[in-house]
């Protein structure tokens, strides 16, 4: 199994109907054979579909014409000399079906019909290549435009302090949705083009903060991510019960979590020290010992790193010798 490329996906996504040529010269079964010679020569083609009231009846080819000439039967109509039941493709089939046909049969073109057997177009190898290239070009442009828009938002919007604020309500004990806020924040940061290494540190810290609210609070709280030009300020605020001894809470390994929380894989007393490790700056307050406010700042340009442990590992490709 190898990685599926976008082009391979397109072979299944793009339908034959999207890439085929719609205008097709055709004749009826009543057309005299004498006219076929003229049509083939004028249009420099090797076959013409035969259509009766929209429905594909057959195909008349150079070979049929030669045989008719050899038998001196040029007075006949197309209906008497045509090849019936030609191989056709359906417009709603993916282009990969057409490619398989081109590979197995030697034909250079296939007639395309709809679900009722009505002829709707013709498809060649060239049509498929052109159609796929156009699709890729459109997607490439869309991605370019989207990247431009997000990465330039701070330059394009004029204000003294521009920021994007994302707020998420976190419900206490809601393990089912745990991590959704962090996941969303991570995606936005990636979209905005922040360095992967910073995005990773911010995501880990946000996730720890989100889990803390879910595990330790009685009333739940809020996660707020404020993205400014060059920095992200993460705020995690809850409505109690607060932290009596902040210094103690910061110690790695210190935990007040119940056993059932540990069974979920959390509450090991690493959360706050982990947030501190990931952030460029961190402030933790518990005013009145009733609520808790955590503020962590991340420098998005990745330059002003004071103590970013393992920071360099974020963008390092895996060592193949491992």
């Amino acid at each position: 199994m190898t990685q599926v490329t976008r082009l391979q996906e397109l072979l299944y996504e793009v339908k034959i109907g999207e890439v085929m040529t719609r205008k097709v010269i055709h004749v009826t079964p009543q057309t005299p054979m004498a006219e076929i010679r003229k049509l083939l020569r004028e249009h420099r083609i090797s076959g013409i579909p035969v259509v009766q009231e929209g429905k594909l009846e057959g195909i008349i080819s150079i070979e049929d014409l030669i045989n008719t000439l050899a038998e001196s039967a040029m007075a006949a109509t197309v209906g008497e000399r045509m090849t019936r039941n030609p191989v056709t493709l359906r417009e709603d089939e993916p282009v990969v079906v057409a490619i398989n046909h081109f590979a197995t049969h030697g034909y250079g073109r296939y007639l395309v019909v709809d679900g009722k057997g009505h002829m709707v177009g013709i498809v060649t190898r060239g049509d498929i290549i052109e159609g796929l290239l156009k699709k890729l070009e459109v997607e490439y442009h869309e991605e370019e435009i989207r990247r431009y828009r997000v990465s330039h938002i701070f330059e394009d919007v004029v204000s003294d302090r521009t920021s994007i604020i994302l707020r998420y309500d976190i419900v206490a004990r809601d393990f089912k949705h745990a991590g959704e806020a962090s996941s969303n924040i991570k995606q936005v940061l990636t979209r905005l083009g922040a360095p992967l290494e910073v995005v990773r540190r911010a995501a880990i810290a946000t996730y720890e903060a989100e889990m803390n609210i879910i595990i330790h609070t009685t009333e739940g709280g809020e996660i707020e991510a404020e993205i400014q030009a060059g920095r992200l300020i993460l705020r995690a605020m809850d409505r109690g019960p607060g932290i009596p001894d902040i210094a103690k809470a910061m110690e790695p390994g210190f935990s007040t979590a119940a056993e059932w929380i540990r069974e979920l894989g959390f509450g090991a007393g690493m959360g706050l020290s982990n947030i501190k490790r990931c952030a460029n700056e961190m402030k933790l307050e518990s005013p009145d010992q009733k609520r808790t406010c955590l503020e962590a700042t991340f420098y998005l340009d990745g330059k002003k790193q004071e103590s970013p442990p393992r920071a360099e590992s974020g963008e390092r490709p895996p060592d193949p010798s491992n």
């Binding site: 992967l196 880990i204 894989g265 974020g314």
Partner: peptide
């Protein structure tokens, strides 16, 4: 949460 952790930590 195992998958969430994997997602956050790349």
């Amino acid at each position: 949460q195992v998958v969430r952790t994997a997602e956050m930590a790349d």
